[in-house]
Design a protein around this nucleic acid. Sequence first.
DNA 1: TGTGTTCTCGTAAACGTTTACGGGAAAACG
DNA 2: CGTTTTCCCGTAAACGTTTACGAGAACACA
Lengths: 351, 351
Amino acid sequence: MLAKAGGELTLASSIHDLARHLNISIGTVSRALNGRADVNADTRQRVLAAAKQLNYSPNQSGRSLRQGATRSIAFMLQPHPGDQQYGEPFFIPFLTGLQARLAEYDLDLMVVMGEPGQYQQERLRRVVETRRADAVVLANTRRKDDRIDYLSKAGFPFATLGRSQSGGDTYPSLDIDFERAGDEAVDRLVARGHRRIAAIRPSHDLNFGYLFLDGYRKALKRHGIEVDPGLIADGFINEAGGYQVTPRVMLSKDPPTAIIFNNDAMALGGCKALAEMGIRPGHDIAVIVIVDTPLCRYFSPALTAFRPSLEPMGRRLAEMLLASLPAFAGPEGTRIIREVWPLELIARDSD
Amino acid sequence: MLAKAGGELTLASSIHDLARHLNISIGTVSRALNGRADVNADTRQRVLAAAKQLNYSPNQSGRSLRQGATRSIAFMLQPHPGDQQYGEPFFIPFLTGLQARLAEYDLDLMVVMGEPGQYQQERLRRVVETRRADAVVLANTRRKDDRIDYLSKAGFPFATLGRSQSGGDTYPSLDIDFERAGDEAVDRLVARGHRRIAAIRPSHDLNFGYLFLDGYRKALKRHGIEVDPGLIADGFINEAGGYQVTPRVMLSKDPPTAIIFNNDAMALGGCKALAEMGIRPGHDIAVIVIVDTPLCRYFSPALTAFRPSLEPMGRRLAEMLLASLPAFAGPEGTRIIREVWPLELIARDSD
DNA sequence: TGTGTTCTCGTAAACGTTTACGGGAAAACG
DNA sequence: CGTTTTCCCGTAAACGTTTACGAGAACACA
């Protein structure tokens, strides 16, 4: 306790109080509470009853120290630099799912955010070295990710939301199928008669930008359309980035009739640029967004987009992480699971 | 540690290792590291150097147990029931600020969410009773809030984002000035010639709904406009709620020429209902939203709204909480600070 | 009755810290 | 030189658990 609010704090009863109250040793009390076999059934009942009566709950610090496990998982979220008035709506439902599943295992969730753009490595090291968490969940994975290198070198358990080229196949990861989304987006546009299709994605070495582009290229090839480098651009992963980079693509000698944006904020900025050029999405040009957010739905025109199931993804990643921890999955069950989830196309008015 | 990843785990060096390496007692090492006065300057240097060399960081579980403080703060966020595809964009920036300031004090942030609509009390009790956190931050405060009653009765330190009628003035709280926003919204509308102004707010005993209404009523009174109960309605705090309740107000004998929505999601649903009735916000009716989100900006027409500074609010609430904790503010500095922050009006196209 | 087994429990160590206490050596002072 | 003070450090207890170990009692079995 940091504060002893004027003495009115209800004393936290310890296992010693319980033992004294029952005229029993603390060892027996602990065994009774933890459901061990070598305790008399009657004794166990008495202990349980007394625990309820005295409102006893085991002190987590004591347990952590003795067992060498904190029973908490750290979630590292690095906000992208840029306009942070509201941040990414992406993560609340993901966190909800992650947290819900962890709670079922009596695990706490610690959130470490770091300043936008700041080097997150120190924060991560602190968590690992001071043993503040038993495992880590990484978000915003980059193609080459220092955090992954560090964790796998240290042998510290972790899982990632998103893929990376770092660290090999030694950790669980869950990602969206950006290749397939890119592929399907092209498919859809081609079926509607487009052949000049632009792709706008974030720079920053964010891995999903590359994955998306792979799918985009693959689909073009399948349809016998040559990839035009002039139709591919990347920019800062926010509205300003989309606003800045979209005109560059539109002003090429042979402009596109469709644009796939790999990020909702960039799409919004792009549409603003288009509007200023007198180009109307849904009329003069087709626009598809790869990861849907509520903004896509309420924008005018409503943007066709691919939607993830964030909350189930959060729950699933928790399961995958737990399955890789011997303490939960059993010694033999230390399985590294990697999954890639499809997106659902939400057809709206922009394409 | 839960997992010992194949033995490659870098051994966490303890203070004993450090002491042995230096031929010094652990007491001295601890004192040196913690900057106590009674340690020779030369010894301190040697300890610090060795700590860096052996990559030593104190084990947090050990510290927590000994000091009776976990150095972590729990943030309790209860999602509103309803459409949870994306949750509330409100909280990410708030969390960012809260977390950033806490990190400066070497405090961790634990996030406890609870299922939407689920009774959050048990989760809270668990945190308190097992001493998993040193203090709690509550969000989504209700007019009468069980959690506040419980915490103040237990003498457990906490602060709230949002006001409540529970618990008296014994805890720090930070809230948005909903009264003033309601007042200003009416002011603005009256200045533009409106006299039939509706107010739509959430039910659920959420406190801010009442505060908003106070400001609304006060402003009407000031302008000599009688409050018409037929123009006041409440509904579920989501899009469906707004969609459902708005027609009820519009179909009254003497319909409003303006509506103030006390929640962005409800406003969106309300606008949908209006559209279906052939009523265009910004043309046929004026619409103002009390708490701005990105959705208001991108909606068509863009919605005039009052915007909070969420990230500074997060930082500020962390400061306020810390100031109320003797361990941080010093024994005399146990001050209970309560603040109410104004909103900034963002004029757009809907009014 | 003697021996082995089972059941139940108490004892004590251990996890990694911090800190109260005391003591020895050096320094200061008379 | 004796006494007091200061400086620095080691010792050990304490935080609240869990758990390895062993021991006593009850019981079974021959």
